[in-house]
C-alpha cells in the first residue's frame, strides 16, 4: 500500500500479491499480509515461514501492514501468539492506513503514447497520513498540515494544499503541483525545495494555483 500512517517510506511497486511478504523499511521490518483471501492461510504460511527461518526473526520488531483487512479479536490473538512463540515483537499495525484505491501497477503505452498511472484518493489527507506513488496523484480533498504526498509525476489537489507535496520525486523537473490554494509547509519538485511562507513567491488571492520549476526555483502562479 502506498499510504502508510507511521511515516514509513512505502516503496512503489511493493504491492502485496497472494503471499505474505517481509519488507525492510527505514523504520524496521514490515510484515505485509495481503488484503484478500482467508486469514488462516496466511497465518499458516507465516508459521511455515518462521519455522524455516531458524530463529532468524528472533527479537525482531515487526510493523504489520494489513491494508484494508480488519482482523477480529481471535485472529489478532492468534497472530500475536505466533509472534510470541517465535520471539517477534509486534510494534505497530498499519490499520490506520485507511481507504486506499489500488493503483494501476504499471504504466502502459496506448497508441504509442506513454500513459502514466494515476492514484486517486477521495478524501482529505490529515496530519500523519502519507502517500507515495510512482505516477501522478489526484486528491479530491485537502492536504492538511502534517500530511505528505510524494509522486514521481504530477500532484493535483482538488482542494487546499497546506501540507507537504513532492512532485517529480525521481528527478523530473517538469512535474507540476496544482491545487485550489497552495499554502504549503513545504513544496518539492524533483530536487528543488521551497519552504512555505518563505522562499515561495505566491499570488495573494485564492484562485487555482500551479507550482513549477523556473530558473532553479519553484514558483507558484495563478492557473489559467
Amino acid at each position: 500500500m502506498p499510504l502508510s500512517d507511521n511515516g514509513d517510506l512505502m516503496q512503489p511497486g511493493s504491492l502485496p500479491g497472494n503471499n505474505i511478504v517481509f519488507k525492510g523499511y527505514r523504520s524496521g521490518l514490515t510484515l505485509i499480509i495481503p488484503e484478500a483471501g482467508p486469514f488462516e492461510n496466511y497465518l499458516q504460511e507465516l508459521r511455515d515461514h518462521l519455522k524455516n527461518s531458524h530463529n532468524f526473526f528472533n527479537g525482531a520488531k515487526i510493523n504489520l501492514e494489513l491494508g484494508n483487512r480488519q482482523l477480529d479479536t481471535e485472529e489478532k490473538a492468534a497472530l500475536i501468539r505466533l509472534f510470541q512463540e517465535n520471539g517477534l515483537v509486534l510494534r505497530s499495525t498499519g490499520e490506520s492506513a485507511s481507504p486506499v484505491k489500488r493503483p494501476a501497477s504499471k504504466s502502459k503505452a496506448i497508441h504509442g503514447e506513454h500513459v502514466v498511472p494515476t492514484f486517486t484518493i477521495k478524501k482529505t489527507l490529515r496530519s500523519g497520513q502519507r502517500i507515495e506513488f510512482d505516477g501522478n496523484v489526484l486528491i479530491w480533498g485537502d492536504i492538511n498540515p502534517g500530511a505528505e504526498v510524494m509522486a514521481s509525476g504530477d500532484i493535483i489537489v482538488m482542494g487546499k494544499l497546506r501540507g507537504t507535496a513532492h512532485a517529480g520525486m525521481q528527478g523530473d523537473r517538469n512535474a507540476r503541483i496544482f491545487a485550489f490554494q497552495i499554502n504549503p509547509v513545504q513544496l518539492r519538485i524533483a530536487d528543488v525545495i521551497a519552504r512555505g511562507g518563505e522562499k515561495l513567491k505566491r499570488t495573494k488571492d485564492f484562485r487555482p494555483e500551479i507550482a513549477k520549476v523556473k530558473d532553479q526555483q519553484i514558483i507558484v502562479e495563478k492557473f489559467n
Binding site: 490499520e95 490506520s96 485507511s98 490529515r126 496530519s127 500523519g128 498540515p145 502534517g146
Partner: peptide, 17 residues
C-alpha cells in the same frame, strides 16, 4: 492553536479506522 489543531487532525484521521 496550531499544535492542538494539528493533533486533533491526526486523531480524526485515526478515528476513521
Amino acid at each position: 492553536d496550531v499544535s492542538a489543531v494539528r493533533d486533533a487532525d491526526r486523531i480524526i484521521g485515526l478515528l476513521q479506522t
